[in-house]
Design a protein around this nucleic acid. Sequence first.
DNA 1: CTGTTAGCGCGTTCAA
DNA 2: TTGAACGCGCTAACAG
Lengths: 336, 336
Amino acid sequence: MNSAAGRAPTSADVARLAGVSRSTVSLVVNDVPNSRIAQPTRDRVLAAVQELGYAPDVSARQLRAGISRLVLMPLPRLPRGMMVDATIEHLSEKLSDSGLTLLVHGDRRSTGMAAARMWAELRPAAVLVAADRCTKSSVALLRRAGTEVLMIADRPLPWADTLEFDQGRVGEAAAAHLLAAGHRRLAAIVPAGPLEGLGRARAAGLGTAARAAGAHSEAIAMEATHESAAAAAAAVRRPGGPTAVFTYNDEYGALLHRALGDQGATMPDDIALVGADNLPIATYLRPALSSVALDPVEMADHMCHAIRSLLERPARSEALVAGVLATPLLVRRETS
Amino acid sequence: MNSAAGRAPTSADVARLAGVSRSTVSLVVNDVPNSRIAQPTRDRVLAAVQELGYAPDVSARQLRAGISRLVLMPLPRLPRGMMVDATIEHLSEKLSDSGLTLLVHGDRRSTGMAAARMWAELRPAAVLVAADRCTKSSVALLRRAGTEVLMIADRPLPWADTLEFDQGRVGEAAAAHLLAAGHRRLAAIVPAGPLEGLGRARAAGLGTAARAAGAHSEAIAMEATHESAAAAAAAVRRPGGPTAVFTYNDEYGALLHRALGDQGATMPDDIALVGADNLPIATYLRPALSSVALDPVEMADHMCHAIRSLLERPARSEALVAGVLATPLLVRRETS
DNA sequence: CTGTTAGCGCGTTCAA
DNA sequence: TTGAACGCGCTAACAG
């Protein structure tokens, strides 16, 4: 398997063209403080860099430094979609302000030791990964290799640095809104399948807030199909059923929205409906779906901050990082 | 900025533990053909690898080899969403079958020379990137550095290897369906803003197919707002206006769908509506939106195949790769 | 002041 | 089965 036009220009090529040594090239290119290189020399080097299109090989740099400026984020398996997408974009930007490069690893399937080995090969400074892809020993492998591991989980893990993403607060935000509107019988739609865990966490927040207010709440399981949505809608509309429903996210909200409409229920009069994640979908429905929004910018901020703390902390500090990911904000539209 | 537990285990560590030389470790770990290492030795090495959690440093390997097994894909700027997401997942899988690792670069903003330099630093074997982020000279920089560049564009570029993504075919598929249903006055919704280019390409396909069938077609600009959608709906419903509309994608379709409904139009009787990309949204609407689907698996196949051809082709072959990305398939639902 | 020499880091490969 | 050299950028020590 050969390659394009050939060998990349090296610092030696630049040095030759500029008539200086390789050290000088390094000093100029990295703008090393206290390096006494005369301006004319500097200019010659930069001109040569320009002419050759020289870009220092990160491999060589990393090999020498022992550790890279890379932050590796394996694509999360579960919640594909805009939230992840937007967060990645902002995180990438913020990290690059700290001289870090965010690389997203395309492999979504591997977990445990195999995954850890795959990530470790790249010797990233840090790995930012959802808890479901790591075991205790895979984290140990990475840390032994000099890579910090920051796990995204819904509660702090005793054996790893954790970025706590308290999904319960999403449900709490929905509950606060619905309770304030006078509802006393709430329900949470919990997706069946791989998203169930996340769904339960959000539903639990709703339940907790309801109990605290002396209101009633229940969980209703639902798959991402029209049939299942119809069944859920029927369950909601049974005599004595809930007057307000919180769905795992806006997609489930949209499905239930349609099912309720098909069954002749009007929103918010018969049933109030609140989704989550504030997806574009929410605004396309009629009546438009209220939704609990998480700000991707804020999430990216928290992530960036946590990663930097991890990389800057003194050698043996035992403290686990634990941060809450974002403040859920209710966007009220027409269904509540 | 220091790091985790320390230094990663090296081949020297493994060699020491197994009581062999570093060369032997290399031969065993890489399973080099024709290297006659006795089975007991082999076993000792592998045991040591296991015990230490050794993972060879890609940097060192890459430095030595001069080229990596990395395929870099900068996140596309424009069409965020599930299509991209699903394609990345499948592509990652297929590439790893060829021993290649897909890394997605989080930076979405940089273009031209700055971007090229950023990518070149990683010395990837190939870069897979949308045409709007590259200039002729930035591609030249990458190729000089030994990196193959595969551009995703809507038509072959004379100065780069191109993966042709003929967006026009999406519009053609919509037209074929609508013409077969007897429509003779078609319209295409073209998004205003950054998506305009893509939108025009899809609309052009509709126009071509309509002309070929002796039918009429027009383009209608629309922003992603309810106000603009209302204006577009009014334009559609004017006397003598189109009887069928193709929207850039399902999100624009959803917006127009709602606006048409608000204005009392029924679908498909008053107006037939077809979106694109087959997003989940399409199934949540009432009536459900017909949509032109592109198969992400097929797209990933094409991409993987093109990348492999690029990496395997003999040194100076001038041929440009040009492949069509996917066959659009119409999913008929209730609006057409 | 200005710039250079020498050697390191780690995995691979060829000759011995 | 191994010793030695290599690939490229960084930096401490050193010389003009």
